[in-house]
């Protein structure tokens, strides 16, 4: 089946099988390997991407369901060589160890910060309850998200929530 999706601002048109999952299409057909597949059972959030500005698990969505929608993956964060403030914050605050969960964490952080520029600990924990990390113990991730929110304060116009 022919689908058209916007991925990180680029129009993509391709033939997919209806049973192909969005995560697989992003990784294998578009070669966007930043999106990870961790559990493949809808539990870990490593595959998190944004659909029309909202964070979802791309292993639990068919690519055909994304037809006509706007997809953003971790590759859409940086501006060329320049890291996005959320990425910069994760580097500065050690928000990762093995890094397997990180793309998902970054996308959930982007979604959260597009809705609330200055979230408190409780809200961060709540928003991240679908993203598992086996390494960090989460505290550094929370610190990273808070630091990202600080870094982003002066340039908030960059983050216009794309929800519709």
């Amino acid at each position: 089946m022919r689908i058209r999706i916007t991925v990180n601002g680029n129009q993509e048109e391709m033939d997919v099988e209806p049973r192909e999952l969005l995560a697989d299409v992003l990784r294998n057909r578009l070669d966007l390997k930043g999106t990870r597949i961790g559990c493949d059972t809808s539990n870990c959030g490593a595959c998190t991407v944004l659909i029309d500005g909202k964070a979802v698990k791309s292993c639990t969505m068919l690519a055909v369901q994304a037809d006509g929608h706007d997809v953003m993956t971790v590759e859409g964060l940086s501006d060329g060589e320049k890291l996005h403030p959320i990425q910069e914050a994760f580097v500065q605050k050690h928000g990762m160890q093995c890094g397997y969960c990180t793309s998902g964490m970054l996308m959930t952080a982007y979604w959260l910060l597009s809705r609330n520029k200055d979230p408190d600990d409780g809200e961060i924990r709540k928003f991240f309850s679908g993203n598992l990390c086996r390494c960090t113990g989460y505290q550094d991730i929370i610190d990273s998200v808070k630091y990202a929110s600080e870094l982003m304060q002066p340039q908030e116009e960059k983050l216009i929530a794309k929800e519709h």
């Binding site: 909202k54 698990k57 959930t108 679908g130 993203n131």
Partner: peptide, 9 residues
């Protein structure tokens, strides 16, 4: 229900 990512869909 589930987590925020599940609830979004």
């Amino acid at each position: 229900i589930g987590d925020p990512l599940v609830r979004n869909r």
